[in-house]
Design a binder for these strands. Structure first.
Length: 425
RNA sequence: GGACAGGUGGCCGAGCGGUCAAUGGCAGCAGGCUGUAAACCUGCCGCUCCUUGCGAGCUACGGGGGUUCGAAUCCUCCCCUGUCCA
């Protein structure tokens, strides 16, 4: 991430502009203005809350949109509370899958929290971040306290919620437990005395419930800020691990580069907007230069990929990832960072078996199919520009001894590569 | 508690005694075209074996048992989901 912009001299108005930049909706901006003003006068930083599910510690670019916004609050000196929903996680957000999650052990949750921290602190400043767990208070509520909480909301209001009413009309199940989810989340805001809560646009209902419940408990309602949901690599559905259309922030640079290069040109601008620190006008400028023909979209996309990867791996690695990508796909040669394996033996094997055991195909049957499809080829030695030989006969045998004079053999199945040394000893 | 409807491959959704490893759509994978982009066209899309063939075997249609030469399809019990009534 770019270094924080300092704020000491920003007017409240400027702070507001900085904080609301990129947000889809803020309820209400006037309240945020008032809170910022007060914070400035009293020197009391705002308490900014965002909740995360304990079951998904693999952070991907979709999450970073929100985390980046948290960082903006930190830049202005406010307190960010990174709340891990170890209690609410047991309920499962109603907007999630309908699969019941097995309860997690405290050890698992603690381990996930650690993983979270490691990833999130690539963006957030650990010194300015409070990590908390909502089981700390929700787990201690007595049945009477629960009853008091539940009495503060009505069924009709819950059913206003779009996904509930939709599911209700469609005849899909809604458990009572799920109905409680928004209230539990709202109670977090009470327990934390949150001034601001951030969430995705899909969280609007839950966030609003927080405002209502806080007032019920005699607190000033939190300001809620909703960040847009990032589309996944397919450009249609939201980025999510279960849909497989994501880029994880811990993925190797090469991997990230490849994935980012596969997005459509249209989606590229969306990513520029939400995943870089460029201002909207800067992005518009780039867009213009492409439509004017002054810049090639391919180069623009490489630039985007490099920027994003730099945030998580550093600029040198990002540059290397780009070089490797160009080597492998544009020049069709073998990159430096190929996967390499050593052979367990040097006897001849059927290629189908070989590909399956080294993970280039998920099974021998699959390997045979890929061969018939013309997806499999091999190259000999370490030449800069290797000549690929396509192998399409499923009965073909790989005999390492035949190639020992070349030193190594590289196998390709579609976009997967594997280099193997064929020198015995 | 009562009356219905339904549970099929990653998802949606046909099939309703043999010709069903199961139509179709989506997703995915590969080839072509490109800027490995998108779009588009083509093929593939359970596993294993080999003599790679419109080959053989195995495992699959919520779970168990049964009827039949033969079941995803019929019977039975169980589990799960929805609708309506109380």
């Amino acid at each position: 991430m770019d270094g924080g912009r300092c704020c000491a001299n920003m007017t409240v108005k400027e702070q507001l502009a900085y904080l609301t930049k990129g947000a889809e909706e803020t309820i209400r901006a006037e309240d945020l203005y008032a809170k910022l003003e007060r914070a400035g006068k009293t020197g009391q930083p705002l308490r900014v809350k965002a909740g995360f599910d304990p079951t998904a510690p693999d952070i991907h670019l979709g999450h970073t949109v929100l985390i980046r916004k948290l960082k903006h609050f930190q830049d202005l000196g406010h307190t960010v509370i990174f709340l891990i929903g170890d209690f609410t996680g047991l309920i499962g957000d109603p907007s999630g899958r309908n699969v019941t999650r097995p309860p997690m052990t405290p050890e698992e949750i603690a381990a996930n929290a650690e993983t979270y921290k490691k990833q999130v602190f690539k963006i957030l400043d650990p010194k300015k971040t409070v990590v908390d767990f909502n089981n700390r208070w929700l787990g201690k509520l007595t049945s009477h306290e629960w009853m008091a909480l539940l009495s503060k909301y009505t069924v009709a209001r819950l059913l206003e919620r779009d996904d509930f009413s939709k599911r209700f009309k469609e005849g899909r199940p809604i458990t009572l437990l799920e109905l409680v989810y928004p209230l539990a989340m709202a109670y977090d805001s009470v327990a934390l005395k949150a001034d601001v809560e951030l969430g995705g646009t899909d969280q609007k209902f839950n966030l609003l419930a927080g405002r209502t419940i806080q007032q019920e408990y005699g607190q000033e309602p939190q300001v809620i800020m909703m960040m847009p949901i990032l589309e996944g690599l397919d450009g249609v559905q939201k980025m999510s691990k279960s849909l497989g259309n994501y880029v994880g922030i811990n993925e190797p640079p090469q991997e990230m580069f490849g994935k980012l290069m596969s997005i459509s040109d249209e989606l590229m601008w969306r990513y520029y907007e939400l995943l870089t620190d460029l201002s909207p006008s800067e992005v518009a400028g780039l867009k213009d230069s492409v439509s004017d023909g002054n810049a090639h979209p391919l180069e623009m996309k490489k630039d985007l990929a490099r920027r994003i990867i730099s945030d998580f791996h550093g600029a040198p690695e990002a540059g290397q990832a780009q070089k490797d990508w160009e080597t492998q796909f544009q020049k069709k040669s073998i990159p430096h960072e190929v996967r390499k394996e050593s052979l367990s033996h040097f006897l001849p094997v059927k290629l189908t078996t070989f590909l399956a055991t080294y993970g280039l195909a998920s099974s021998k049957t699959e390997a045979a199919r890929k061969m018939k499809e013309g997806a499999v080829s091999i190259a000999l030695g370490d030449a800069e520009t290797p000549s690929w030989e396509r192998i399409s006969d499923p009965a073909w045998e790989f005999d390492p001894a035949k190639y020992s004079c070349h030193g190594s053999v590289t196998f390709r199945v579609g976009r997967k590569l594997l280099k193997v040394s064929v020198k015995p000893g």
